[in-house]
């Protein structure tokens, strides 16, 4: 039996809807349920993919797991730390990458790596070795002393990715890791995720890109309208038909809409 490193239990999150938004969506309800009793688990050394359309609640789920926001009810335990009772414990154990976490333009990748390492309490020797390895892998070494403001979009994203790993986390949560990247950088990131998997890390990714799921995920959870409708191994889900066809079949069933 593989060790369970992440377990989400009945996570719920509701957002207030502004008057303006109510008019746009033609609804009189004042709240929107973004995540509705979501439960799943991820095991050591596996890549778990959250698949779903825009607005399904993927990002909200990941933000709750990363302790940026608090669930209304439910809980999740990440490597022994609860996101509600021990958020700082969770923060020290995970690496979280999402496009909304920005790096300060004024600083260089080198400075930022050291700065965040200090906040995670990483010893300087360990930090230097880790920095050298990661910077080389992503080709950041030649840009190590260039201010973030002057880096290309792709390079910025690579620096963000490297910074999210300063604490060498056992559990890595990536929200749309290849969004906005060119094909070459996207491949570098995908290959790196496979390497991390080989290192027995647990990786949780959210995406709406089928090929990414097919390439790296062991298990998949399909989220539609805040609910986890299917959660199974990739092999089981794609036993009869391709992931894409299977997804649309499920979506029609649940959302009741013809795609």
């Amino acid at each position: 039996m593989m060790q369970e490193l992440l377990r989400a239990d009945n996570l719920c999150k509701t957002f207030k809807i502004s008057k303006k938004q109510q008019r746009i969506e033609k609804t009189s309800e004042k709240t929107k349920v973004a995540v509705d009793r979501l439960s799943f688990c991820a095991y050591e050394g596996e890549v778990f993919g959250l698949l779903g359309p825009n607005g399904a609640g993927k990002t909200t789920t990941l933000r709750m797991l990363a302790t940026l926001i608090k669930p209304d009810s439910g809980d999740a335990v990440i490597n022994g730390s609860s996101i509600t009772s021990d958020p700082n414990g969770v923060r020290s154990k995970i690496g979280f990458l999402t496009s909304e976490l920005k790096l300060e333009d004024f600083f260089t990748p080198n400075y930022l790596f050291d700065f965040f390492s200090e906040l995670y309490g990483v010893a300087p020797e360990v930090r230097n070795e880790r920095k050298k390895r990661l910077f080389e892998k992503f080709g950041i070494d030649t840009f190590a002393e260039v201010k973030v403001a002057n880096l290309s979009t792709g390079m910025k994203q690579k620096v963000s990715l490297v910074i999210s790993l300063v604490n060498d986390p056992q559990i890595i949560i990536f929200d749309e890791p290849t969004n906005g990247l060119d094909v070459i950088t996207a491949k570098v990131v995908t290959d790196f995720l496979l390497e991390l998997k080989a290192e027995k890390k647990t990786i949780l990714v959210s995406t709406h890109i089928f090929s990414l799921i097919e390439k790296i995920c062991d298990r998949v959870g399909i989220i539609i309208q805040g609910k986890m409708v299917v959660c199974d191994t990739l092999a089981n889900i794609t036993a009869e038909k391709s992931l894409e066809d299977k997804f649309f079949e499920i979506y029609e069933e649940v959302a009741g809409e013809q795609v």
């Binding site: 940026l68 020290s92 976490l101 920005k102 333009d105 906040l119 995670y120 910074i163």
Partner: peptide, 17 residues
């Protein structure tokens, strides 16, 4: 400014209090 630019969120996911 840090809030506006989204850089403070990066600090808030670290284990710092």
């Amino acid at each position: 400014g840090e809030k506006e630019r989204g850089t403070i969120a990066t600090l808030l996911v670290t284990p710092m209090k």
